[in-house]
Amino acid sequence: MGILLTGADGYIGWPTAVRLASRTDERLILVDNFARRDWVKSVGATSATPVEPMSDRLAALRDELGARNVSFVEGDLTESSFVDRLIRVHEPETIVHTAAQPSAPYSQVSREQANDTQHNNMQATRNLLWSLEEHGLQETHFIETTTTGVYGAPEFPIPEGGATMEHGGERDEVPFPAMAGSWYHLTKAHDAANMRLAHEQFDIPVSDVRTAITYGVETTETAADPRLATRFDFDYYFGVVAHRFCAQAVAGYPLTVYGRGEQRKPFIALEDAVEGLVRLALADPAERPADHTVYNQVTRAISIVEMAETIAGVGTELGLDTAVEHVENPRSEDETHKMEIENDRYEALIDGQSTTFETGVRSILERLLEHDEVITANEDRFLPSVLSEG
């Protein structure tokens, strides 16, 4: 019994594991196959912050937090036999599923990356859900980080999960249609549909946490010891736009905005994303969702150009030579789209507490200045080849 956390070596998974270890004495089983490290390496990129071996990370949990309730299992969730054994042996009361190939650009590289992404992400989720059913664990709370990217970019405010559809004079509440714009985002749309089906057929309580673009270099807990640091990718494939801009500022490189950059995207600080997952995982059994519930885990929608200008401003205050530069957009997107997204359910979950973008950016820049040599040595990874070679 206890909590099973998948993707424990990942950017969000690891700090979630650390916070859980700091707040509960429940048994905590961490699972990963270290694929994220291999994917990043395959595109010639690296984390700006050192990512320690799992053995060192676990030692730091014991040293800094006194955690004695944590164990780690290495394995591939796409393998049915591994997942069956994992669920049968540990019988978790809660699963926090953060394991996935998380990069839209990586999933777009070729047929091979698209196929690998879809197989990896969807097979893992299906294996976990079916194993819960087959081992009689239908009361296990299944929490997954999907993505706000499943919504696409509609012209109306995005609801928190469902929508009202009217046709032929009749109305009904229906799941929001999958409007994903990449092979990666489509995996999460399929996961959302599969989780809904698992709830309907198996009666498994599901929390579909549609996490926005997540930025940040640390949480309160991971800052306590360098061995507890999570990864920080800043390349075109695995580094989200806020991370790429921050790394460019540290390297004295122009902050490259694709096209006009006036489109708004949903964002959330790592600190806040972790908090939402931890609160769901540690909810009192009597208060845990028994239904299928969608949370839009987002605190704010920000335009790309506003983000760049904010980072440039903070960088200037820290003595960095920063400038914003507009370049040709390698993506097909509306560069002026003004996204609106509802998040009342998520705001209630975290009691309306959230990190301001400027505060989060300042923390990133201050920490990245300690690793500026790694960034400058890899500045060729900032842009896709179609732009860097132009």
Rank of each mutant, 00 (worst) to 15 (best):
Leu58Glu: 00
Val89Leu: 15
Glu287His: 08
Asp351Glu: 15
Arg260Ser: 14
Ala35Asp: 11
Val274Phe: 03
Phe82Thr: 03
Thr299Tyr: 10
Ile268Pro: 00
Ala286His: 12
Asp334Val: 07
Glu325Phe: 10
Ile341Ser: 10
Phe82Leu: 11
Gln101Trp: 06
Glu287Met: 12
Met179Glu: 07
Val250Ala: 06
Gly152Trp: 09
Thr46Asn: 07
Asn378Gly: 01
Ala178Cys: 08
Phe202Asp: 02
Gly390Phe: 02
Val327Lys: 12
Gly136Asp: 13
Arg111Asn: 12
Arg260Thr: 07
Gly152Met: 13
Ser55Trp: 00
Leu368Tyr: 14
Val51His: 08
Gly313Asn: 12
Arg300Gln: 15
Val305Asn: 13
Phe156Leu: 09
Val250Thr: 05
His185Thr: 08
Leu65Met: 10
Arg171His: 13
Ala104Cys: 06
Arg264Ser: 14
Gly181Lys: 09
Leu137Asn: 05
Ala301Trp: 04
Trp183Ala: 02
Glu160Asp: 11
Ala8Met: 01
Asn378Phe: 02
Gly162Lys: 05
Ile87Trp: 05
Asp84Gln: 13
Thr376Gln: 15
Asp233Phe: 04
His371Glu: 15
Phe202Arg: 03
Ala48Val: 04
Arg36Gln: 11
Ala59Gly: 09
Glu173Gln: 03
Gly152Cys: 10
Thr147Ile: 13
Ser107Phe: 01
Val51Asp: 03
Ala224Lys: 15
Ile95His: 02
Gly136Leu: 10
Ala99Asn: 03
Leu77Arg: 09
Glu358Arg: 10
Gly252Ala: 07
Thr16Gly: 08
Arg126Asn: 09
Met339Phe: 09
Arg362Ser: 06
Thr24Gln: 03
Ala17Thr: 00
Arg57Lys: 15
Arg37Glu: 14
Leu282Ser: 03
Ala348His: 13
Tyr237Ser: 04
Ala286Leu: 12
Glu342Val: 09
Pro266Asn: 12
Thr145Glu: 07
Ser385Cys: 02
Leu30Tyr: 00
Thr219Asp: 07
Thr146Lys: 13
Gly75Met: 05
Thr222Ile: 02
Gly149Lys: 08
Arg85Leu: 11
Ala114Phe: 05
Thr336Asp: 14
Leu65Ala: 09
Glu379Val: 01
Leu137Asp: 06
Leu186Met: 12
Pro53Phe: 01
Glu134Met: 08
Tyr106Gln: 13
Gly10Lys: 12
Glu342Leu: 15
Pro159Trp: 03
Phe238Glu: 06
Glu366His: 15
Asn329Ser: 13
Leu86Arg: 01
Ala224Val: 02
Ile341Pro: 00
Asp334Phe: 06
Arg36Lys: 11
Val73Gln: 09
Glu112His: 05
Thr310Trp: 00
Val327Tyr: 01
Thr355Ala: 03
Gly390Ile: 00
Ser332Asp: 11
Asp208Ser: 11
Phe382Trp: 11
Glu112Arg: 05
Phe232Ile: 04
Arg367Lys: 15
Thr49His: 04
Pro330Gly: 10
Asp9Cys: 07
His199Tyr: 13
Met165Cys: 08
Tyr236Asn: 05
Pro154Glu: 11
Leu277Asn: 11
Ala251Gln: 14
Pro266Tyr: 07
Met179Ser: 10
Ala308Phe: 06
Ala104Asp: 10
Ala192Tyr: 14
Val174Glu: 05
Met54Val: 12
Thr214Asp: 06
Ile95Asn: 07
Val51Trp: 13
Asp380Cys: 05
Phe245Cys: 04
Gln297Asn: 12
Leu255Ala: 02
Gly149Trp: 07
